[in-house]
């Protein structure tokens, strides 16, 4: 029997256990997304309709296939189904890392969302996004907000709807051991995201926040050589480039022929939010100081 879950505003029926997600007890209607196992997926797709986007990804107008070597094959179709073929004796935690990452990201593109690389933190009536490249410190920042009692809506993959609202995603933060130590979080009781890695699933309260939150603030997190934080507001067209640059798996989006929609989405969204570039020292930054800085900046632009 598949188990029922909820994420990104979707009801999910899954043959694969997804302990990271809040469960649902029952559904009146068929689930929005069905995740099944399909051992027949063992090789690259063939057929003229398939366009190869990378050594590991293929797409058609309605389907997307992803191969993570030695881990799994994923076939994502019509924004409604994900079929998964784990490879060999791979552990399911490893499969879930990519299922709840790139595979769900492709599905969110198929469903027409603006999908961004970053996290979303609930500020009450509105939320903030923090975007940036891997290693910028986004997850550490999200964990620091969580430690202050803020609800982290999504980490890594943020889906924004046509009204500029972020959808509650997967209630966990993937956090490295050194970041956990910096935040004085014990990793003793946490599960590793993959057995061989010093990276952990930091669970967040599964409060079943199902309502999308309007995005009011977007912070672009980066690093610089200077010893202090630097916050610069971006206005007008300057907000557009960072949204394009921080699009989740831009290669997928372009390959799926969503460029025109995406440009329009970014343009519309850029007009709805306050945006600032935040640079932090390259090494040894004060994470609490960064939380304070962002809170102070947000307090100057209160929710209307």
């Amino acid at each position: 029997m598949p188990t029922l879950y909820q994420a990104y505003g979707l009801t999910i029926s899954s043959e694969i256990d997804l302990p990271e997600l809040p469960q649902l007890s029952g559904l009146a209607q068929p689930a929005d997304l069905s995740i099944t196992r399909d051992p027949t997926l063992t090789s690259a797709p063939t057929g003229d309709e398939w366009v190869q986007l990378s050594p590991y990804a293929w797409t058609t107008p309605t389907a997307f296939m992803l191969f993570v070597p030695d881990v799994a094959w994923f076939l994502i179709e019509g924004g409604r189904t994900i079929r998964v073929a784990p490879i060999g004796g791979i552990d399911m935690a490893s499969v879930r890392v990519f299922l709840l990452g790139s595979a769900i990201g492709a599905l969110l593109f198929q469903r027409g969302f603006l999908v961004l690389h970053g996290n979303a933190v609930d500020m009450g009536d509105a939320c903030m996004l923090c975007l940036g490249v891997s290693g910028a410190g986004k997850s550490t920042l999200a964990a620091a907000f969580s430690a202050r009692g803020y609800n982290v809506l999504a980490d890594d993959v943020v889906a924004v709807n046509a009204d500029g609202q972020a959808l509650p995603g997967i209630p966990r933060i993937k956090i490295w051991r050194d970041a956990a130590e910096r935040l004085a979080l014990s990793t003793g009781s946490l599960d590793r995201i993959r057995p061989q890695m010093e990276k952990f699933n930091l669970p967040l309260p599964k409060t079943l926040v199902s309502a999308p939150r309007p995005v009011k603030w977007v912070f672009l997190l980066g690093k610089h050589e200077k010893p202090d934080f630097e916050l610069t507001h971006l206005n007008g067209i300057a907000r557009f480039g960072p949204l394009m640059a921080n699009t989740y798996r831009r290669r997928f989006m372009e390959g799926m022929d969503l460029n025109a929609d995406h440009l329009a989405q970014c343009g519309r969204f850029a007009g709805l939010v306050h945006m600032a570039q935040v640079r932090r020292p390259d090494a040894g930054f004060d994470i609490d100081g960064l939380v304070d800085l962002l809170l102070e900046d947000m307090s100057k632009v209160p929710v209307a």
Binding site: Y56, V68, V97, K174, K199, F252
Partner: peptide, 13 residues
């Protein structure tokens, strides 16, 4: 590598 692969090297050994 992340861009071309389509998944995160941060999740790989």
């Amino acid at each position: 590598v992340d861009d071309v692969a389509g998944f995160d090297t941060a999740d790989l050994t």
